[in-house]
Design a protein around this nucleic acid. Structure first.
Lengths: 166, 166
DNA sequence: ATCCTCTTGAAATGATCTTGCTTAAATGAG
DNA sequence: CTCATTTAAGCAAGATCATTTCAAGAGGAT
């Protein structure tokens, strides 16, 4: 159910819910300029057709004593599809690994990891990551601080493109 | 208002809302084992004390024609605090840059970027990023595919640690 | 022009949110 | 150990919101 042309209102809904996922439907309807029932129908449609993949609360990791965030650049020995998939499956099992992206270039994967402290991460690194078969090299970088963290789509850019094509 | 000791119920609430940020309060209350009013009070407290930093809908970037995702490793010439801050401010202004993390090691920053297509990204890269003062080097890697993307805290790990300390 | 389809908005109903109050349990001082 | 204090739970009520139903209007095709 992927196609389903979006109109301006749909995009506004997506932008609003991306900014505040707990907004009530009446508030959302008011902001996008339609009444509540059609607004709710649109939201449901956007959910069912996959434009909205879920809703999440952003929890402060540091407040929960996860002090350490690390990017790990991983190189594998074999890049055969089977081996790539095996490594990805491992990543999905490791709770400390929150993101796993396959890249082009010299590095095969980049992982974003969290841990309560450095020693916890180190034991994961040596005990799990580095001792996984097919892992050739791992280069890690500690996150000192985060200047921006806004996952999602820049709707400003999207609107600009649409205005241009009109 | 950062302190405010969390108990088991609070952690359950955080875990549930991280998994489904749009859950109704009565459903949440049922899951964590208390009635609705105290549950809502706890959620409000968690929000006000900063444990919950916000709620967001996850929008499918690809469905909105953002086909390209790139990690950019940036090195600066000067690492004086003023210059670091200047670069971070730039990143906050660039809509294509969704995340900006300062790292230790040879690379100063890692950026996660999105773009509708490669050419859009390339013009951003050459026209903006590379022509910014103080930027010494940029190495980019295209994301081929994403095997895991679960921002947030691994509550399984948190619970395991607490059980151990008990 | 007429029918068909699709979407909207108003109204109604049921569920949820939210507040104030009461009560019970936990904590500490004497 | 007892009592005062504090903290949080549950209950009940009104307000708000979600969701369904349905009639009406816009747009397209015949």
């Amino acid at each position: 159910m992927p196609p389903h042309k979006l109109d301006d209102i749909d995009r506004k809904i997506l932008a609003e819910l991306q900014a505040d996922g707990r907004m009530t439907n009446v508030e959302l309807a008011k902001r996008v300029g339609i009444s509540a029932p059609p607004c709710l129908r649109r939201v449901r449609t956007l959910e069912e057709s996959g434009y909205i993949k879920g809703y999440h609360a952003v929890v402060d990791a540091r407040a929960l004593n996860f002090e350490v965030q690390v990017f790990a650049m991983v190189g594998l020995q074999s890049q055969a599809e089977v081996d790539l998939s095996k490594f990805e499956a491992k990543c999905r099992e490791w709770p400390l690994v929150r993101e796993c992206h396959m890249l082009n270039g010299e590095v095969d994967f980049i992982l974003k990891c969290v841990a309560p402290d450095l020693s916890t991460f180190q034991s994961f690194l040596t005990g799990e990551l580095l001792s996984t078969e097919n892992v050739a090299s791992v280069k890690t970088s500690l996150v000192i601080r985060c200047a921006k963290d806004e996952p999602g789509v820049p709707f400003e850019v999207l609107e600009a493109r649409l205005a241009q094509n009109a």
